[in-house]
Simulated scan of single mutants.
Amino acid sequence: MKCDKKDLLLYAVTDRSWLGEDTLYHQVEEAILGGATFIQLREKELSQEAFLEEAKEIKELCRKYQIPFVINDNVEIAREMDADGVHVGQSDMEAGNVREVLGPDKIIGVSAQTVEQAVLAEQRGADYLGVGAVFPTGSKADAEDVPLETLKAICQAVSIPVIAIGGISTGNILKLAGSGICGIAVISAIFAKPDIRAAAAELRSLAEKMVQA
């Protein structure tokens, strides 16, 4: 499965912080029904075994709706359960090494914060870039801010799709119009909301406006 920029319009990154009595499977399905176009499974706390089981379930769900499904950071799990791909940070693994492990047909996303990192990731085989944090965010303590000018410069410097991540909400998404990105990645703007499906639907409609502006 290759990465189409249309698939990156509303990229939902999971987080079990707000599960309460709910299941991750149900929350992800609600996000998809609301309009999420891409799912990244992000788990920092689960054991490898529990992560693998959960990944298999979410993969089947995404397959049902024909939505790309990638694993955050964990290249081994992505390979073992045959995810559509993986998203890695700068410190996790070079895109070229990930490609060797996963093979030519998998989607590889790489986080970037500078033009140099972005160009290098593209050269090494990344399919798309996640750039941020574009706004202040609570989900990553070490996320540096990426100014709008840098985001634009990255979009101009590479030919692969770029999505923005970090602190994006319905209140600020339209500030990203004209930057050259093809979509947004969000965590709390969907999964922290009481009505996940409605939150995803509103963001989807704003993301469509933003990329066309």
Rank of each mutant, 00 (worst) to 15 (best):
residue 185 A to F: 11
residue 24 L to F: 02
residue 24 L to A: 09
residue 95 A to H: 09
residue 109 G to Q: 10
residue 79 R to P: 02
residue 76 E to R: 14
residue 112 A to S: 13
residue 116 E to Q: 07
residue 15 D to I: 07
residue 42 R to H: 10
residue 39 I to S: 05
residue 180 G to V: 00
residue 161 P to K: 00
residue 153 A to Y: 10
residue 91 S to T: 11
residue 196 I to A: 07
residue 123 Q to L: 05
residue 162 V to W: 01
residue 171 G to Y: 02
residue 157 A to I: 03
residue 114 T to V: 10
residue 24 L to K: 06
residue 166 G to I: 12
residue 111 S to G: 06
residue 108 I to L: 06
residue 137 T to E: 08
residue 11 Y to N: 13
residue 9 L to E: 00
residue 23 T to H: 01
residue 186 V to Y: 12
residue 139 S to H: 09
residue 134 V to Q: 14
residue 168 I to Q: 04
residue 49 E to Y: 12
residue 40 Q to S: 03
residue 7 D to W: 00
residue 40 Q to N: 03
residue 73 D to K: 08
residue 183 G to F: 10
residue 50 A to G: 06
residue 120 L to C: 09
residue 107 I to C: 07
residue 75 V to F: 01
residue 205 S to Y: 09
residue 109 G to D: 06
residue 161 P to R: 00
residue 90 Q to S: 06
residue 164 A to L: 00
residue 83 A to T: 00
residue 54 E to D: 02
residue 184 I to D: 08
residue 55 A to M: 01
residue 178 G to L: 03
residue 43 E to F: 13
residue 90 Q to C: 04
residue 162 V to I: 01
residue 57 E to P: 08
residue 99 R to Q: 11
residue 75 V to P: 03
residue 146 V to G: 05
residue 27 Q to K: 15
residue 207 A to S: 13
residue 38 F to R: 07
residue 189 A to I: 05
residue 190 I to V: 15
residue 167 G to L: 00
residue 173 I to W: 05
residue 45 E to D: 10
residue 108 I to M: 04
residue 199 A to G: 10
residue 86 V to N: 01
residue 148 L to G: 04
residue 128 Y to Q: 07
residue 79 R to V: 08
residue 88 V to C: 07
residue 206 L to E: 00
residue 171 G to C: 04
residue 123 Q to R: 13
residue 111 S to F: 03
residue 20 G to A: 05
residue 206 L to W: 02
residue 59 K to A: 05
residue 99 R to A: 08
residue 23 T to K: 05
residue 161 P to G: 02
residue 36 A to G: 09
residue 14 T to N: 03
residue 8 L to K: 04
residue 154 I to C: 04
residue 62 C to Q: 08
residue 161 P to Y: 02
residue 208 E to G: 12
residue 177 A to F: 06
residue 111 S to L: 13
residue 62 C to W: 14
residue 146 V to E: 04
residue 111 S to E: 03
residue 30 E to M: 15
residue 184 I to T: 08
residue 132 G to W: 11
residue 45 E to Y: 13
residue 167 G to T: 01
residue 85 G to F: 05
residue 176 L to A: 04
residue 24 L to T: 04
residue 166 G to K: 06
residue 77 I to A: 15
residue 23 T to P: 00
residue 25 Y to D: 15
residue 6 K to W: 01
residue 139 S to G: 10
residue 21 E to M: 05
residue 193 K to Y: 01
residue 172 N to D: 03
residue 95 A to T: 11
residue 68 P to K: 13
residue 174 L to A: 03
residue 75 V to W: 03
residue 105 D to R: 15
residue 143 A to V: 12
residue 112 A to H: 04
residue 92 D to Y: 01
residue 15 D to R: 06
residue 100 E to T: 08
residue 169 S to A: 02
residue 138 G to A: 15
residue 201 A to Y: 09
residue 203 L to H: 05
residue 40 Q to P: 03
residue 140 K to P: 12
residue 76 E to V: 09
residue 28 V to W: 04
residue 57 E to Q: 15
residue 6 K to V: 07
residue 67 I to C: 11
residue 180 G to E: 01
residue 52 L to T: 12
residue 89 G to I: 11
residue 176 L to Y: 00
residue 169 S to T: 15
residue 137 T to H: 11
residue 26 H to C: 10
residue 142 D to S: 06
residue 201 A to W: 10
residue 130 G to W: 08
residue 95 A to P: 15
residue 197 R to C: 12
residue 30 E to N: 14
residue 127 D to Q: 11
residue 192 A to D: 09
residue 177 A to C: 09
residue 96 G to W: 05
residue 157 A to W: 02
residue 122 E to Y: 07
residue 14 T to C: 05
